[in-house]
Design a protein around this nucleic acid. Structure first.
Lengths: 194, 194
DNA sequence: ATGCTAACCAAGCAAGCGCTAGTGTTAATT
DNA sequence: AATTAACACTAGCGCTTGCTTGGTTAGCAT
């Protein structure tokens, strides 16, 4: 590998693996399944990745990277009021989960399948993303927009959002944006402040 | 089997299997692991259950049954105001997830590993539990206690609660009851009405 | 004593798993 | 024309998986 990375072929394989990990789960996805979807034989897979674990690691890295990038973009573009920033953050999170799809979902749902080495390689990405949420939630609390303990609120909000993966129907009537609006409506108490 | 059921030995095996399914996940839990925890050999397991799938089915049935029973009890004991009923329901849900432990967690997190036959055998339990939630949430909405679309609110609330399994620390300072209070505080707008 | 039954064990099978070794093949570089 | 590197294939190894088979044991009612 030129730089262990960056190959466009590799990027495409990661996309395909991510889709399978979401549909079947990591454990149930075999290297033979992945190879078939990629149009190669199972042995050839190991030319691109050291082992199955490295594929998971690459998918999750991609997922966290996308989520972080989209969240930062959304916050930069949003106006400075706490309400607008909360709204932007919720929208960005649902976007990566429900439309960009797959990679971020794998990051959330297959995290515990990572071995210690991969985990410590990815944990700083996770922390950076959590830090964005902490900032936005704390602002909203300080502005009196939401009520509750900062840590609990953050966990509840993220839980509500992450669980959407289980029931959201992309063919259905609701868009990720409208869902974002629903959630913000549910938890905000002083709409005039937004 | 006397009645395919009801053996106390079987009940105990289900408890042990549930614990393993939570810690390792269904796919990663092998029949040999279960047998070892139960103090028998792997072959003997199939005296009690037809196959691994039946164990999963039994665990989830137990989990849904417990959750349903506890929720009904909580609603019966709660006073009739929408706020009190919402509070009772949230508390009951967290109780089965975080203290009773295991079986209800498996029901939520391993549902998709059920085959079609098992699923159609369990789906009415799931529907009954969802119906309780629908009732309580709709009451709270009608009373002006919460804001939003009934279906979305129900899904968000359940998502926030179900995700607690991922981060809750039983050794930590927070009890399920205090968490329940936190969530209700976060989403209710008119505390005087409770 | 005898028969019945629930509970268990020892041994192992067939299938599927992740992964490796060795060998082309193709296209760009020297 | 020779070399190299990236990519793919064939074949299969060693291991684990869920599950089966055929038999043993202990308790209990007749």
């Amino acid at each position: 590998m030129t730089l262990v990375n960056a190959s466009s072929r590799r990027k495409e394989l990661i996309r395909i693996a991510a889709r399978l990990f979401v549909v079947e789960g990591f454990d149930r996805t075999t290297v033979r399944m992945m190879a078939q979807e990629m149009g190669i034989k199972s042995g050839s897979l190991f030319h691109h990745f050291r082992d199955k674990q490295e594929i998971l690691c690459a998918v999750i890295e991609e997922g966290m990277h996308n989520a972080l990038a989209l969240a930062r973009l959304a916050l930069d573009e949003a106006s400075a009021t706490p309400g607008a920033r909360l709204d932007a953050m919720v929208r960005a999170h649902l976007e990566t989960l429900l439309t960009d799809r797959n990679a971020h979902v794998v990051a959330l749902y297959e995290w515990r399948r990572l071995d210690n080495e991969s985990r410590s390689h990815l944990v700083h990405l996770r922390d950076a993303y959590e830090a964005l949420w902490k900032q936005v939630i704390d602002e909203a609390l300080d502005a009196g927009l939401i009520r509750g303990d900062p840590l609990s609120v953050r966990r509840f909000v993220l839980g509500a959002l992450n669980w959407t993966v289980r029931w959201y129907d992309p063919e259905g009537p609701r868009s990720p944006e409208s869902l974002a609006r629903e959630l913000v409506t549910m938890i905000t108490h002083n709409p005039s402040a937004s």
